[in-house]
Simulated assay, not measured.
Amino acid sequence: MATRSDSIPTEPARGPDASPFRRALATLAVITGGCAALMFAGFLHFVQLVPGAEQSTPAAGDGIVALTGGAERLSDALRLLASGRGKRLLISGVHPETTERELARAQPDYAAFARCCVDLGRRALNTAGNAVETRRWAVGHGFRSLIVVTSGYHMPRTMMELAREMPNVELIPYAVVTDRLKGEHWWRDLDTARLLAGEYVKYVAALVRVRLAPRLAKAPVGAETVQGPAEPAARS
């Protein structure tokens, strides 16, 4: 009696085994998604560090440092100096071609303190350079505490760079809040979102560099570091 061929189950023909490739794709997708989620969570944490309201008057420090980048930074720093919150003010990152006359025109209060209490740092090209310039200035004057004046979105990176250069100096942040961050939700304005995202990327890059490259010993303060009024006791 003839047997039916379809009574014996057979397995379908298999092509090349694609499961390792699929597993690799799935693993890559999980890793990519995890990294994206981690970066987004870090960004949200970073945004929480950025103040969105005017800051209260800070405690007094030995000195005040203002990082260039906005007119409000300098005006607020001069106001703090006028109120006796610091003995001297360093304006770090001043363009080499900017004159004191131009500063006085832009900031009417500048002239009143230019000769006695304000030093101009012209060598810093970025935030890391601001930190080096500030450290040299603080060491030169023997300051142990500094009020730090910069924009709110720039403050987290600034404080990290300064702490790296001056771990034994008390840093007192005084953030200048820009109009676009006052009382507004950052996600409702594309330009504000881009500003924060760009600063977050710089913050992460600086964080990696700070973690991987501890500060090395620097040379003593040089007289060319900052420009200030002549002090006979300190000059030959």
Score class of each variant (00 low, 15 high):
76 D>A: 15
186 W>Y: 15
34 G>K: 04
222 G>K: 12
158 T>S: 14
12 P>T: 11
219 A>T: 05
212 L>T: 07
24 A>S: 02
152 G>R: 02
228 G>D: 07
188 R>V: 02
220 P>S: 02
137 W>C: 00
37 A>N: 11
209 R>S: 13
113 F>I: 02
144 R>F: 03
67 L>D: 05
96 P>Q: 07
88 R>D: 06
103 L>N: 09
183 G>R: 11
37 A>Y: 08
129 G>T: 01
225 T>D: 14
166 M>Q: 02
57 T>G: 03
220 P>K: 02
8 I>N: 11
127 T>K: 09
101 R>L: 12
224 E>V: 01
39 M>H: 06
195 L>M: 14
178 T>L: 09
17 D>A: 09
130 N>D: 14
59 A>P: 08
34 G>C: 10
198 G>P: 06
85 R>N: 06
100 E>R: 14
77 A>K: 03
64 I>S: 13
135 R>Y: 01
100 E>V: 00
30 V>I: 12
90 L>A: 09
156 P>N: 06
80 L>I: 01
26 A>K: 12
108 P>F: 08
154 H>V: 00
25 L>T: 02
16 P>Q: 13
129 G>A: 02
53 A>Q: 14
213 A>Q: 12
143 F>G: 01
39 M>S: 08
83 S>Y: 00
211 R>H: 14
217 A>D: 13
2 A>I: 03
150 T>K: 03
226 V>W: 10
148 V>G: 11
190 L>S: 14
188 R>Q: 13
29 A>C: 11
146 L>V: 15
131 A>K: 08
37 A>E: 08
56 S>Q: 12
61 G>E: 06
97 E>P: 01
39 M>A: 15
190 L>K: 15
82 A>T: 01
46 F>V: 12
191 D>H: 13
51 P>F: 10
18 A>S: 10
190 L>I: 15
24 A>W: 03
195 L>D: 12
226 V>C: 13
216 L>T: 15
96 P>M: 07
178 T>I: 03
20 P>H: 01
188 R>I: 08
71 A>W: 07
134 T>G: 00
